[in-house]
Simulated assay, not measured.
Amino acid sequence: MTPILEARHLSRHFGALRAVDDVSFSLAPGELLALIGPNGAGKSTCFNMLMGQLRPTAGTVILDGTDITGKKPRHIWRMGVGRTFQITATYASMTVAENVQVALLSHHRRTFAFLPYATRLYRDEARALLDTVGMADQADRHAAILAYGDLKRLEIAMALAHAPKLLLMDEPTAGMAPRERVALMQLVADIVAERGVSVLFTEHDMDVVFAHAHRIMVLNRGQLIANGAVEAIRADPKVQEVYLGGGTLFSAERAHA
């Protein structure tokens, strides 16, 4: 099976600092892959190279068999890559449904339609996407008054408007209460299962990672030090040492509580 995403010997240097240093990995279709590591490990730099915000110093990024190294973010987005950010990016003055409609207008290349009648376009599609993320009943509320967890769900609906084959999610549960984190990542896991979307996400909450990731990669000081199944990563002595200072990773019972 052809990987949906491959990073081959990916590096990014800032002067003498090697923020990402010879990182290689692949992501299978329908896989939920976690990228973890201490602050400053290189996770965001890696994401920015995958999405085109940064050009690699060395290495190659392959999307579904096509070399996308150095392409602009808008071109990569058009090729089927969506991204959500740690800080949500929604339009506070618009309703929930209108936010999704804007994303659909862009997907259908109808940005010229940002006129009063644009609110009549793609209503049914927007409602269907909101139903996917459990927000159909909030379609007519303004984004400005949404709870933070609902804003995260709205951002996922907007990302899905482009029908992506790959989602890059940068700390999707940041700033959320523990129960909200679990619910949001369960939603993402359901989308992966139902739509076959591949997801690469960064996350600091180990409960979330262990409960939902199919596989885990660990970065430290720009280098990939571990890549494997959840239980293998949990027991890896190097991961224990560099990521949690020699402490014991959470038990399976706690991760699934």
Rank of each mutant, 00 (worst) to 15 (best):
L224C: 04
R109Q: 10
F112K: 03
F210H: 12
N220G: 04
V100G: 03
G134K: 00
A163H: 13
A189F: 04
L5T: 03
F250G: 15
F112Y: 10
E125D: 13
A41P: 00
A213I: 14
F201R: 02
M185W: 06
I76V: 05
R12D: 08
N99Y: 03
F250C: 15
D170L: 04
A157V: 10
R179H: 13
A58G: 07
P73Q: 11
G15N: 04
K43Y: 00
D150L: 01
L50H: 08
G175I: 13
G228V: 10
A139G: 10
H212L: 01
L219F: 08
L129H: 06
V208P: 03
C46Q: 14
A163S: 10
G80Q: 04
G15E: 11
R141G: 11
M135H: 00
M1D: 13
T111E: 06
T90P: 06
G65I: 07
L10F: 04
L33V: 05
V23C: 04
A113H: 13
S44H: 01
T60S: 05
A143V: 12
V192F: 14
S26H: 09
V61A: 06
Q53A: 12
L115R: 13
G247A: 14
H75T: 15
V230I: 06
Y122N: 07
Q101W: 05
L154D: 05
I145A: 12
S44R: 09
T66S: 12
A19R: 07
V192M: 12
A136L: 08
F85C: 12
K72N: 15
G70S: 01
L167G: 10
G246M: 07
Y148S: 07
L200H: 05
L17E: 02
L129E: 10
A16V: 06
I87P: 07
A159C: 14
G30Y: 07
E6M: 13
Q240M: 15
P38W: 03
S11R: 11
D67C: 02
A7G: 15
G82I: 02
V61W: 02
K71D: 04
